[in-house]
Every structure is written in structure tokens, then in C-alpha cells.
């Protein structure tokens, strides 16, 4: 069984294997197809129309399926690789080893936000930004540039304490666990981390930055942690909801997987620790 680990615990060999698998997917063009898919969903998921990947109950099962597909692509390159997660309540500064040159590289330079260290720096020639919303073809970051700090453990715990998965109107205005985790309401967890990183991570083409996968892996873990804390709380809604993916509806773009199918992650992988 594949085990997803906290990135802070990876050995240098594990870090190298993960980075090399990313670079191989990038070279083959497979990486960019994930960026394209994500952008298509995030720019069409709307509060008053069809919504599958974001601002809706299926935010969590959709990204779980998306991450599994990406992890399988990595494993087709190197079967030893699993997605690491970034616990941003713990590794909360730009000085974290996650941003070191032997892993993701650091923040962008002040001139133009260009990442200049690590394997994804434009100067490496290995990480052109092809799926983009503007003319810049280099990876950008501005770690902490937005001014608001990363969410704290106490803020995470306040969201994990919410007993109801989601509520009407099942969009960015909803009360409940999903929307507070996604971040459109309340303390704002997931959205705030995208903004803290800045650069492509703040845009519709956020998976251009490999940290996207480590961030969403932690969001996925928080869903599993919430399930463990609330064994009697299930996915909502369960049926007959316009524009929204109900428990047994299938999700685009796969059309063969429902939220119900994604509820138990242990069929696919486990996490190194459970909260």
C-alpha cells in the first residue's frame, strides 16, 4: 500500500525521486495536460451554474480523484514515488527546507517574481510554463507576499470541528466543513495558501507550480482527518440537487467515479499519520 508522507520527513533520495518524476512528466507533456484540465474546471465552476471541481461539495472528491490520477502518472515513471503533503501549519515560512534548492526551490526574485533556485527555476530549462494566462513563461512565486500569514493549527482545528459536511446553497456561500476548508468563508484555509505562495499558484493555472500537489495532498489529508473525527457525518447532498454533484452522481471529466467512490482513501493510499 502506498504511503503518503509529510514532505518534512522525506530523505534526500525520496526528494530526488519525486523531483525527477515531475521533470519526466513535464518533458513528455503529460504534466501540462493536468494544468489544462484544472484550468478548464476552475474557470467554469460557477456559483449559480454547473460546478464540479470547486466552490461545491465535490471540491474534495474531485481533487482526490485528480491527485490519484496524477500520482499514478508519477508512478508510471517511478513506482516508488507517492505524493508528499505539506503541513503548512507546521512549515510556515519561506525558510522551510521544502523551499530549498534540492526540493521545490525558493521564492521569486523581486524584479519579476521569477523563481531562480531549485529544479523548477527557468534557468534550468526544464520547467517552461506553457499553459498560461499571460505572456510569462517562467515559474513565479512571492512567498508570503500577500501579507496574511499561513493558517494556524488552531484555525485548522476550528474547521475540523464543524460537524456538517456542506450546506445549501452548495456553493461559495455555504456554511459547513467543505466551504470553510476550501476557504470562501470563515478563517479561509485552502484559498489562503494559494494566495500566500503567489505567482501561478494564485491563478487558474495553479498546478504549474509543483507545490500545488503538496498543498492539495494536505487538504486531502484534512478531509480524511475530518472523517475520522465525525464518523456519523457523511457527504452531502445525497440526491436531486441541480447543478451539484450528489453522493452517487458521477463527476466530470472521468464520468465513471462518484463522491461515494472517493470516500475511503485507504483503498488507494494511506497517510503516515492521522490526526
Amino acid at each position: 500500500m502506498a504511503v503518503r508522507k509529510n514532505q518534512a520527513t522525506l530523505t534526500s533520495t525520496e526528494k530526488r525521486a519525486f523531483v525527477n518524476a515531475l521533470l519526466a512528466l513535464k518533458r513528455s507533456g503529460r504534466y501540462d495536460s493536468f494544468v489544462t484540465t484544472h484550468n478548464e474546471f476552475i474557470t467554469s465552476d460557477s456559483d449559480n451554474g454547473d460546478r464540479v471541481g470547486h466552490r461545491s461539495p465535490s471540491f474534495l472528491p474531485w481533487h482526490r480523484r485528480f491527485l490519484i490520477q496524477f500520482e499514478e502518472a508519477l508512478q508510471s515513471v517511478d513506482s516508488s514515488v507517492t505524493l508528499p503533503y505539506w503541513d503548512w501549519t507546521d512549515d510556515r515560512t519561506a525558510a522551510s527546507s521544502m523551499w530549498a534548492p534540492d526540493f521545490l526551490g525558493g521564492t521569486g526574485r523581486s524584479l519579476d517574481g521569477q523563481v531562480i533556485t531549485g529544479p523548477f527555476a527557468a534557468s534550468s530549462g526544464n520547467w517552461p510554463i506553457n499553459v498560461r494566462v499571460d505572456g510569462r513563461s517562467f515559474l513565479r512565486r512571492s512567498l508570503g507576499g500577500g501579507g496574511r500569514p499561513l493558517p494556524t493549527r488552531a484555525e485548522v482545528d476550528s474547521v475540523l470541528a464543524m460537524p456538517t459536511y456542506d450546506t445549501a446553497p452548495w456553493n461559495s456561500a455555504s456554511d459547513g466543513f467543505r466551504n470553510h476548508l476550501e476557504g470562501w468563508r470563515g478563517v479561509n484555509l485552502h484559498n489562503r495558501v494559494h494566495v500566500w505562495i503567489g505567482g501561478q499558484m494564485g491563478t487558474g493555472v495553479s498546478p504549474n507550480d509543483p507545490v500545488f500537489w503538496l498543498h492539495h495532498c494536505f487538504i486531502d489529508k484534512l478531509w480524511a482527518d475530518w472523517q475520522r473525527r465525525h464518523p456519523d457525518s457523511g457527504y452531502l447532498p445525497t440526491g436531486g440537487t441541480p447543478n451539484v454533484v450528489d453522493l452517487h452522481d458521477t463527476m466530470r471529466p472521468w464520468n465513471d467515479v462518484s463522491p461515494q467512490d472517493m470516500l475511503d482513501h485507504t483503498a488507494h493510499y494511506t497517510y503516515d499519520t492521522a490526526a
Binding site: N39, I42, T43, S46, D47, N48, R55, V133, D134, G146, P169, N171, S172, A173, G183, W184, H190, N191, R192, H194, V195, G202, T203, G204, V205, S206
Partner: peptide, 20 residues
Amino acid sequence: LHVMRNADSSWISVVNHYET
């Protein structure tokens, strides 16, 4: 600039997609 409106009437764009 691709823009969207949120249920609370705030706005996001493809450039600032996680901030209203």
C-alpha cells in the same frame, strides 16, 4: 480578463483566482 462573480457578489479573475 476572464472574470467570475461569487454568490456574495464579490469578484475573482483568472489572474487572482483564490482571492475576492
